[in-house]
Amino acid sequence: MSVDPNGQLTIAIAAGKGGTGKTLVATSLAIAIDAHYPGCAQIIDCDVEEPNAHLLMQPELTAQAPVEVLVPEVDLDTCTRCGACARACQFSAIAVIRQAVLTFHGLCAGCGACAYVCPVDAITEVTRRVGTVKSGSAGEIDFVTGTLNVGDQRATPVTKAVKDRIRDDLITILDAPPGTACPMQETVEGSDYCILVTEPTPFGLSNLQDAVETCRRIGVPCGVIINRDGSGNDGVERYCAQEGIEVLLRVPQDRRIAEAYSRGETLVATMPQWRDELATVYYHITDMVAAQATGEGVS
């Protein structure tokens, strides 16, 4: 078993828009890496609101653990109704309306500011379960997925919990949730590289621009995979050229891919030639990350 000499990368697969092919790319990339480095790949489904990587990877999930957050509990006998907690809370998760003290656990970020500012120590932080992390393996690929409890609004604690399972000794692929909001940012942050999957349409381009801007602000280098290439216009290509963003791969508009995917088959299972294409993308990312690390070392 050979191990990548450049270290074990963490690569996030994201997109500004849903349905562009994040999971298509993430699952096949993990399989391609596993084929070249058996037993060295890990895939983590970070879309805890609507996980779907398991549908394609068919993993055997052998362990599960609860995800808990801290929420405030107010001792109403001690509380003086001063309202300091409500003023401190940035999420309106606690309110003091005349004599009533209300906590809204679904809005709470678990930051503890309310307990910190309470002048009479009337607030204790207690745990509340918000989701579950499940782990196991699909063949030799380490597999992690998480689910946010139905009705809960804050995905990031569960995203953090699945990311805690990133193994330093494995090459990790993070399948990010769609969009550019907190759950996506939480996923991409700390990754070595981010692949943005897009469609060559005006809508795809608009969302790609948001995603590129987000990656730049987070400080994670990114490149683009164009899915359903040939189906739209050249707006994405022109934007990438203008902005100096590399197009890593183009997956054509092909009915066979769509049909196989709808049956729950991965791209590489349907068309094995994509395994080498995706492995090449991985090697290329490895080189770019290594070059950047060297560049930073010099400067």
Binding site: G83, A86, S92, A93, A95, V96, I97, L102, F104, L107
Partner: peptide, 19 residues
């Protein structure tokens, strides 16, 4: 100020008018 908040606008508004 809660009019443009991501979440919790209703609670913030209730707090505002109660205050």
């Amino acid at each position: 100020p809660g009019a443009l908040a991501g979440t919790g606008a209703g609670v913030a508004a209730a707090q505002l008018i109660a205050d």
